[in-house]
């Protein structure tokens, strides 16, 4: 039974109606069915083309949304997962390894959520511990050593706020990645495939190009937490989602991201293969441009890109 979000209910009802009519034997309802199917198409267009920021947050968190490994399985040939940070352990909330995308060897690193309680517990709900960030960095250094590009897939509700995570230096692990990723002498492409929550997302999100899928979010804080801090209540999550300007469209306008990747109608959860195809095409296109540049130009442009981030003014008083 697929999960239906509240705003998708009219679509689901119509879908069920059509299914019901199709299952009726003896009577030919094909005219009625095709009329309803046309209506369904319109309804989908209407609903999915006008999603509010909060609705996009809901889609980004959809329990059936493809995870990093679903994408890797589809567009990365011969993927071999590598484990461990060589310091403490192996974090299951971040996966990493190498494989080929369209014939080009890549180091691919992704935050990995589960799909049910058991796998979510195993993946810590996609919330990495410091060893996850350190594993990611170790694999990226390896990629640089052998001159292979890096692709990161971002999908996290945040870095894990646990006691042990603090003891093992969550902040240091993330900070170190920001510093090193800003100068890694190979192309780095980052794609937000689900949730991009704060420093936990940025910890594998510094690179030459930042791409976002259509129904994802990326911000400094989750809308619920923002609501709880600024409004002192959990009730304002929808307003917080709008205020934070966390959608791909907003962030393209603010020059935070470089490209939006289209999703299948109704979200990536509706068609894994097509979603993976869209991501693959975008990654290949970006890599083509980046690989044509000498390393020095690549690094200068990366520094320049981040130097320009943000908006400020002057007040002469």
């Amino acid at each position: 039974m697929p999960v239906i979000l509240d705003f998708e209910k009219p679509i689901a009802e119509l879908e069920n109606k059509i299914k019901g009519m199709q299952s009726v034997a003896n009577v030919d309802l094909s005219n009625e069915v095709s009329a309803l199917e046309q209506k369904l198409e319109q309804l989908r267009e209407e609903i999915y083309s006008k999603l509010t920021p909060w609705q996009k947050v809901q889609l980004a968190r959809h329990p059936e949304r493809p995870r990093s490994l679903d994408y890797i399985e589809r567009f990365c040939e011969g993927f071999t997962e590598l484990h461990g940070d060589r310091l403490f352990g192996d974090d299951h909330a971040i996966v990493g390894g190498f494989g080929k995308i369209d014939g080009q060897p890549f180091m691919v690193i992704g935050q990995q959520k589960g799909k049910d309680t058991k796998s979510n517990l195993y993946r810590n709900f996609g919330m990495p511990n410091p060893e996850g960030y350190r594993k990611a960095m170790r694999l990226m250094r390896m990629a640089a050593k052998f001159n292979r590009p890096v692709l990161t897939l971002i999908d996290t509700p945040g870095a894990f706020p646990g006691i042990e995570a603090e003891e093992r230096g969550q902040a240091e692990a993330i900070a170190r990645n920001l510093l090193e990723m800003s100068r890694l002498p190979i192309p780095i492409i980052c794609v937000v495939i689900g949730e991009g929550a704060s420093g936990g997302a940025l910890g594998i999100g510094v690179g030459d190009k930042l791409l976002m899928m259509e129904n994802t979010w990326y911000s400094v804080i989750a809308p619920e937490s923002c609501s709880s801090i600024l409004w002192r209540s959990w009730e304002y999550k929808e307003r917080a989602a709008s205020a934070l300007k966390l959608t791909a469209d907003d962030l393209l306008k603010l020059n935070v991201i470089d490209r939006i990747i289209k999703e299948p109608m109704g979200g990536a959860n509706r068609d894994y293969d097509l979603a993976a195809q869209f991501v693959k095409t975008a990654v290949i296109a970006e890599f083509k441009n980046l690989s044509a540049k000498p390393v020095s130009a690549l690094l200068d442009e990366r520094i320049d890109k981040y130097s320009k981030m943000g908006f400020w003014g002057e007040m002469n008083k």
Partner: peptide, 9 residues
């Protein structure tokens, strides 16, 4: 929002 996050980078 995300602009603050980018200041970290």
């Amino acid at each position: 929002g995300a602009l603050s996050l980018m200041q970290m980078a």
